[in-house]
C-alpha cells in the first residue's frame, strides 16, 4: 500500500456538510465506532454484560448506556454504536459466546436531524409513522429514505439520528435538505 505523505488528511463522508431550514437543523454526526452484531437468544445475556448494556429484544427499541447505543434491527440482529472510547469488537469478543460481530464503523455515516420540523423533513422520503405515540424517543428502525436504506433512531422528541451507508450519504443529506425546506413552509 502506498504510504500516505506527511500532512495528508482523511476526508470523512459528509465532512463540512451543514444545512437545514428555519424548522430543521442538519449536521453530520462526529465519527463513531459501530458493529453489526448477530447472536442467538441464548447468548444475549453474556453479550449484554460484555457490552455493558441490555441488548433490546422488543422490535423498534434501543438501549443506551455509557456512550453506547444498541439498536434492534431484527430478532437476532443489532447495530451497536459507540460514541465514546470505542472497543466494541474487543468487548463482544470478551463475551466468550457464539456471535458474529462485524466492524462497520466506516461503512456508515450519520446525519443528525433536529428541530421542530425534524420528523416532517424525514417523512419527505420515509413512510414510517413518526408520531411520538408510534415512534417514541429511543425507537429505532431500519427503513427506507426515498431510494436508500437507512437506520433511523429517535434521540429526542425533535431529534433523530439517520445512519446511512457512506456512499449514499451525499444523496441522503441532499434529500433531507429538500425535506427541511418543505418542513419550513
Amino acid at each position: 500500500m502506498a504510504k500516505l505523505g506527511a500532512g495528508s488528511i482523511r476526508t470523512l463522508p459528509l465532512a463540512g456538510f451543514h444545512g437545514g431550514s428555519s424548522a430543521v437543523r442538519l449536521e453530520a454526526a462526529p465519527p463513531a465506532e459501530r458493529i453489526s452484531l448477530r447472536a442467538g437468544a441464548e447468548d444475549m445475556a453474556a453479550l449484554s454484560q460484555a457490552l455493558g448494556l441490555d441488548l433490546p429484544v422488543k422490535p423498534k427499541t434501543s438501549a443506551a448506556a455509557k456512550g453506547r447505543t444498541a439498536l434492534w434491527l431484527g430478532p437476532d440482529e443489532w447495530l451497536v454504536i459507540d460514541e465514546g472510547k470505542g472497543g466494541l469488537m474487543q468487548a463482544a469478543a470478551s463475551s466468550g459466546v457464539l456471535h458474529s460481530a462485524v466492524d462497520v464503523s466506516h461503512r456508515n455515516a450519520a446525519i443528525l436531524v433536529s428541530g421542530p420540523g425534524a420528523s416532517r423533513a424525514i417523512n419527505a422520503g420515509c413512510s414510517q409513522d413518526l408520531s411520538l405515540k408510534v415512534f417514541p424517543v429511543g425507537a429505532c428502525s431500519r427503513t427506507v429514505l426515498a431510494k436508500v436504506e437507512i437506520v433511523l433512531l429517535r434521540t429526542a422528541e425533535d431529534a433523530f439520528r439517520v445512519e446511512v451507508w457512506r456512499s449514499f450519504s451525499d444523496y441522503a443529506f441532499g434529500l433531507l435538505a429538500e425535506g427541511a425546506q418543505d418542513a419550513a413552509l
Partner: peptide, 18 residues
Amino acid sequence: MLLIHCPYCEEARSELEF
C-alpha cells in the same frame, strides 16, 4: 400505499420495505 404486516416487527409497514 400498500401496507404489509411483518410478523417479526409486529407492525404494518409500507410495501417499499418488502
